[in-house]
């Protein structure tokens, strides 16, 4: 069985996997990092989004073996070690960007990828970027508002609806 070694949230992680082991299975079942969720398992919903070498990917549609040697970032690494939320997480809380919370790990990781490439996105940019992240609770308005707020922009004009 193949051995994989990678860095997950800055720490070395290794284990024995099958060829078919998905990255999300390795993270959740082998590493115990259950913050990354599996919603659809068909790469539609985006609840499983993590960063691999700095790029957002759907961890249900990538094999663990392919992340061998990579730097992986998950939702567990977003807050500070003392539990202080990062700016995106705090904005989701402040603007009620979640209800059931199932999609939130993927939303936060996608938002982080967006803001890295586009620090001051327009509302349209945010909505376009979230094309692959599905939320069945919020209707997206407060998620978009939270991401705009996390980018340091005034969200007073964005209707809560």
């Amino acid at each position: 069985m193949p051995q994989v070694k990678m860095t997950v949230n800055g720490k070395a992680a290794s284990g024995e996997v099958e060829g078919r082991t998905l990255l999300v299975q390795f993270l959740r079942e082998d590493q115990g990092l259950t913050g990354t969720h599996v919603g659809c398992d068909t790469s539609q919903c985006g609840a499983c989004v993590v960063h691999v070498n700095g790029e957002a990917v759907k961890s249900c549609t990538m094999f663990a073996v392919e992340a061998d040697g990579a730097e992986v970032a998950t939702i567990e690494g977003q807050a500070a070690p003392d539990g202080t939320l990062n700016v995106i997480q705090q904005a989701f809380q402040d603007h009620h960007g979640l209800q059931c919370g199932f999609c939130t790990p993927g939303m936060v990781m996608s938002a982080a990828a967006l803001l890295k490439d586009n620090p001051k996105p327009t509302e349209a940019d945010v909505r376009h970027y979230l094309d692959g992240n599905i939320c069945r609770c919020t209707g997206y308005h407060n998620i978009v508002k939270a991401i705009m707020a996390a980018s340091g922009q005034d969200v007073g004009a964005i209707a809560a609806e």
Binding site: S43, A56, V57, K58, T61, S110, A113, Y129, G132, N133
Partner: peptide, 9 residues
């Protein structure tokens, strides 16, 4: 094509 995460793979 697809969405941003799909385009990264």
């Amino acid at each position: 094509i697809g969405d941003p995460a799909v385009r990264n793979r």
